[in-house]
Simulated assay, not measured.
Amino acid sequence: MSHHIDASEPDVEGFYDYHYEYDVFEFSDGVVTFLARAYSDEPERAAMMTRTEGKGYHHLTKRDLRHPLFLKAAAYLRTVGKSHLDWLDRRSGAYVPLPPDRGERQ
């Protein structure tokens, strides 16, 4: 896990135009890696974002949802309090909720 802050420069009063604070989770089996992001202001939420293989980044597909590493990643995120999980669907370009028990199925 790595922690990130993406923010504009503060104005003269110390306010930001935008300020995003989030953690990136990386789950890898040495061949495939899944990345998830969780924003600090929504501690119960996380989103599975992409799959990487070698040097290539790939948008997620429904097939990825059945990958053993994806299932383990979802289960882990739930154990650390991420009770609401989404995935970024390649086809629609939208965040789609994972069923509540997706991470526990093997």
Results as ranks from 00 to 15, higher is better:
Gly30His: 00
Gly30Trp: 02
Gly30Ile: 04
Val31Phe: 00
Val31Pro: 04
Val31Gly: 01
Val32Ser: 08
Val32Trp: 03
Thr33Leu: 00
Phe34Thr: 00
Phe34Pro: 00
Phe34Cys: 04
Ala36His: 02
Ala36Trp: 01
Ala36Leu: 01
Arg37Pro: 01
Arg37Asp: 06
Arg37Met: 00
Arg37Trp: 05
Arg37Glu: 08
Ala38Val: 05
Ala38Trp: 04
Ala38Lys: 03
Ala38Asn: 01
Ala38Cys: 08
Ala38Leu: 09
Tyr39Ile: 09
Ser40Met: 11
Ser40Pro: 05
Ser40Asp: 14
Ser40Phe: 08
Asp41Arg: 09
Asp41Met: 08
Asp41Ala: 10
Glu42Pro: 08
Pro43Asp: 15
Pro43Ser: 15
Pro43Met: 10
Pro43Lys: 11
Pro43Ala: 12
Glu44Ile: 06
Glu44His: 13
Glu44Gly: 07
Glu44Asp: 15
Arg45Ala: 12
Arg45Asp: 15
Arg45Pro: 04
Arg45Val: 14
Ala46Arg: 12
Ala46Trp: 11
Ala46Met: 13
Ala47Lys: 06
Ala47Glu: 13
Ala47Met: 10
Ala47Tyr: 08
Met48Phe: 07
Met48Ala: 07
Met49Asn: 05
Met49Tyr: 00
Met49Gly: 05
Thr50Val: 06
Thr50Glu: 14
Thr50Phe: 05
Arg51Asp: 07
Arg51Glu: 09
Arg51Tyr: 03
Thr52Ala: 10
Thr52Gly: 00
Thr52Ser: 11
Thr52Phe: 01
Thr52Arg: 15
Glu53Pro: 01
Glu53Met: 08
Glu53Gln: 14
Gly54Lys: 06
Lys55Thr: 13
Lys55Ile: 12
Lys55Pro: 04
Lys55Ala: 12
Lys55Arg: 13
Gly56Glu: 15
Gly56Tyr: 14
Tyr57His: 13
His58Cys: 09
His58Ala: 05
His58Asn: 09
His58Trp: 04
His59Met: 15
His59Phe: 14
Leu60Asp: 01
Thr61His: 02
Thr61Ile: 03
Thr61Val: 02
Thr61Leu: 00
Thr61Tyr: 02
Thr61Asn: 00
Thr61Pro: 02
Lys62Gly: 12
Lys62His: 14
Arg63Gln: 13
Arg63Cys: 03
Arg63Asp: 11
Asp64Trp: 00
Leu65Met: 13
Leu65Glu: 05
Arg66His: 08
Arg66Tyr: 03
